Amino acid sequence: MYLVKSPFLLKWYYPSLTWNKTRKEKVIYLTFDDGPIPDVTPFVLKTLKDFNAKATFFCIGDNIRKHPDIFKQLKEEGHQVGNHTFNHLKGWKTEDKTYLENFKMCQELTQTNLFRPPYGRIKKSQIKLIQLAISNCQFPVQTANAKLQIVMWDVITGDFDLNLSPEECYRNAIKHTTSGSIVVFHDSLKAFDRLEYALPRFLQYFTDKGFSFLTL
């Protein structure tokens, strides 16, 4: 069960998390979860390049370990990377110490101040532990004194949903996206049929409306 548009209640319950950016500029923040994956992530990179778009990739540490060349490529092409845990752990069902260690394993590879909890599910106790670890410089980050930013979204396309048609995925995305939206796609094999259809059409639609696509 998921909602394409993040509800106000969730934003109220987790006020310290980033759900969207300023609505005053015609900018969209595309994000991709679960890569890097052969064929899929390179498709995303090529499509972004076709539209002169930049994005943020929330990477699974184990996939970085398996596919370091693709991870290197997305950074070299000017995209941002974020931590998505090493093994795609669901915070609600994971003991805090285990979650923190899994975050750390991915952080060693990403060295970023951006984090997205898999499934968008994280305990407040886990948020505090991770933020404290970053502020105490226990984990490496690219920028000195960087504050951890836990990034959620206000639009999730549903590209992972096998019951959703590619056209429905595309319609989900364009219906709910507006200025400052943080939009979630997935560079995963499961999502590829819908991603391959929806992403270039999404980029074309909003490019024609004068939007830019930037990293977080």
Score class of each variant (00 low, 15 high):
residue 22 T to V: 10
residue 138 Q to C: 12
residue 23 R to A: 11
residue 59 C to G: 05
residue 181 S to P: 11
residue 142 Q to P: 04
residue 157 T to C: 14
residue 205 Y to F: 01
residue 108 E to C: 06
residue 135 S to C: 06
residue 107 Q to E: 05
residue 84 H to L: 09
residue 20 N to V: 00
residue 77 E to F: 00
residue 8 F to E: 02
residue 183 V to H: 00
residue 133 A to V: 12
residue 104 K to A: 11
residue 132 L to F: 13
residue 78 G to C: 10
residue 157 T to G: 12
residue 64 I to G: 06
residue 130 I to F: 11
residue 147 K to M: 06
residue 74 L to D: 05
residue 53 A to E: 02
residue 69 D to E: 15
residue 142 Q to K: 03
residue 90 K to L: 13
residue 115 F to Y: 15
residue 75 K to R: 11
residue 36 P to R: 15
residue 179 S to T: 00
residue 67 H to Q: 13
residue 180 G to C: 04
residue 135 S to N: 10
residue 169 C to F: 08
residue 110 T to W: 01
residue 39 D to V: 12
residue 61 G to D: 14
residue 152 M to D: 05
residue 115 F to W: 08
residue 215 T to M: 07
residue 192 F to W: 09
residue 51 F to G: 13
residue 39 D to A: 11
residue 122 I to D: 03
residue 94 T to M: 12
residue 45 L to E: 15
residue 132 L to T: 15
residue 6 S to V: 12
residue 47 T to W: 02
residue 179 S to G: 06
residue 185 F to D: 08
residue 7 P to G: 11
residue 26 K to D: 04
residue 183 V to S: 08
residue 113 N to P: 00
residue 176 H to P: 06
residue 162 L to E: 06
residue 10 L to E: 05
residue 52 N to E: 03
residue 96 D to G: 01
residue 149 Q to A: 11
residue 146 A to D: 08
residue 59 C to R: 06
residue 146 A to T: 03
residue 127 I to C: 10
residue 189 L to I: 12
residue 137 C to D: 09
residue 49 K to E: 14
residue 3 L to M: 11
residue 52 N to S: 12
residue 102 N to V: 03
residue 55 A to K: 11
residue 180 G to F: 05
residue 17 L to S: 07
residue 183 V to M: 01
residue 171 R to L: 12
residue 4 V to L: 01
residue 40 V to P: 02
residue 137 C to I: 03
residue 9 L to M: 11
residue 69 D to Q: 09
residue 54 K to S: 08
residue 103 F to C: 14
residue 129 L to I: 09
residue 60 I to W: 04
residue 57 F to A: 06
residue 214 L to K: 14
residue 190 K to P: 03
residue 43 F to S: 07
residue 123 K to D: 10
residue 18 T to C: 12
residue 202 F to K: 04
residue 134 I to Y: 04
residue 96 D to A: 15
residue 114 L to V: 05
residue 27 V to N: 06
residue 47 T to K: 05
residue 99 Y to K: 01
residue 198 A to Y: 00
residue 13 Y to N: 05
residue 45 L to F: 09
residue 144 A to G: 00
residue 126 Q to E: 09
residue 49 K to Q: 13
residue 209 K to E: 13
residue 213 F to H: 06
